[in-house]
């Protein structure tokens, strides 16, 4: 019975990944369509002679509209698929918990899954508030899909009870808040990266379709100031747990150290935002560095360096 749940959970996980990939493809088509639309616009911008006898006031609109509508439709479908993916994803995580009879955040596979779910949900919230952001969706989904893929393969662990060290309600508090904040931080990380891309003037054809640099910058900042206190809370609860589980609240274990490094980098981001001359460009770099540390902590520290956190379900 319970193993059956575990099986369904795994299948739903794969289904969610598949749906996210589809959404990505649709987002990609949306981009491609807009490009062809641009091409048509260029064509239509020439002498208006080859116009079919259309309503006179809108001569160039005809050829341009169809692809635009189609691009828009692709975009909408992508968003609808993301919503579907989130639904599948949530059920997958819930079933995981049911089958293992514990909070479904006991190993890196589950942890990564939760981070990605949070990132996608955050993204949907952003979209709801500013639908014009939609083209960014592709770039949010890309890291999500990569992380989920790695989570489902390299990091995968069978649904099972956890070791005694993890039997504590602090698991719920600490790991949940850490994964929520890590997932939230994926969005500003992406936004800052796109911001830098936009400002650098390279890949112009790509960059042009993104929202303006200031919009991306604001998205990065607003999400970071929600995620950073949450991350701080997660680290503090980790320390409280460590005091009960390992005999000291802070011991510079590799995972603690990188958590500290990431925290300091995000602190630097907030300071940069308040320092003349650093407010935008440098701040964005710092934000990207911060998220890199989160990812580094997730993969490198768990897989390469052994520490107290290494019961993460590998090996």
């Amino acid at each position: 019975m319970l193993t059956e749940f575990a099986l369904y959970s795994d299948r739903l996980f794969m289904a969610a990944v598949g749906v996210y990939v589809l959404a990505m493809i649709l987002h990609g088509l949306e981009f491609a369509r807009e490009r062809s639309e641009n091409a048509l616009l260029v064509g239509a911008g020439g002498p208006p002679t080859p116009e079919p006898p259309a309503p006179a006031p809108l001569p160039p609109a005809r050829p341009a509209t169809a692809p635009r509508v189609r691009a828009d439709r692709f975009g909408r479908m992508a968003v609808a698929l993301i919503v579907l993916g989130v639904g599948l994803h949530i059920v997958s995580i819930v079933l995981r918990g049911v089958s293992a009879e514990r909070w479904p955040l006991g190993n890196m596979y589950e942890f990564t899954s939760m981070i990605c779910l949070t990132a996608v949900v955050t993204w949907l919230v952003v979209l709801r508030r500013s639908p014009a952001m939609r083209p960014v969706g592709l770039f949010v989904l890309l890291p999500v899909v990569i992380l989920l893929f790695l989570g489902g393969t390299v990091l995968y662990a069978q649904a099972a009870p956890v070791v005694p060290a993890l039997r504590s309600y602090w698991l719920v508090v600490h790991v949940t808040t850490i994964s929520l904040s890590s997932g939230l931080l994926l969005v500003p990380g992406t936004a800052s990266l796109l911001f830098l891309l936009r400002r650098s003037g390279r890949f112009a054809s790509l960059a042009q379709r993104l929202p303006g640099a200031d919009v991306l910058d604001r998205l990065a900042y607003r999400t970071t100031i929600i995620a950073f206190p949450l991350y701080t809370f997660g680290v503090i609860t980790g320390a409280i747990w460590a005091e009960a589980a390992w005999g000291r609240f802070w011991g510079w274990d590799p995972k603690e150290t990188v958590a500290f490094v990431a925290w300091v980098i995000y602190a630097a981001y907030l300071h940069a935002r308040a320092t003349a001359g650093w407010r935008t460009g440098s701040a964005a770099w710092i934000n990207v560095a911060g998220f890199s540390m989160i990812i580094f902590n997730l993969f490198f520290i768990n897989m390469v360096i052994a520490g107290l956190h290494s019961y993460a379900g590998l090996g």
């Binding site: 150290t257 300091v264 602190a267 940069a272």
Partner: peptide, 21 residues
């Protein structure tokens, strides 16, 4: 100054990093 604090924060992060590696 804020700028110095920023640089020091950055240095702190860089200096702590080998402690994990």
């Amino acid at each position: 100054s804020m700028r110095t604090a920023l640089v020091l924060l950055f240095l702190l992060a860089v200096a702590a990093f080998p402690g994990a590696l």
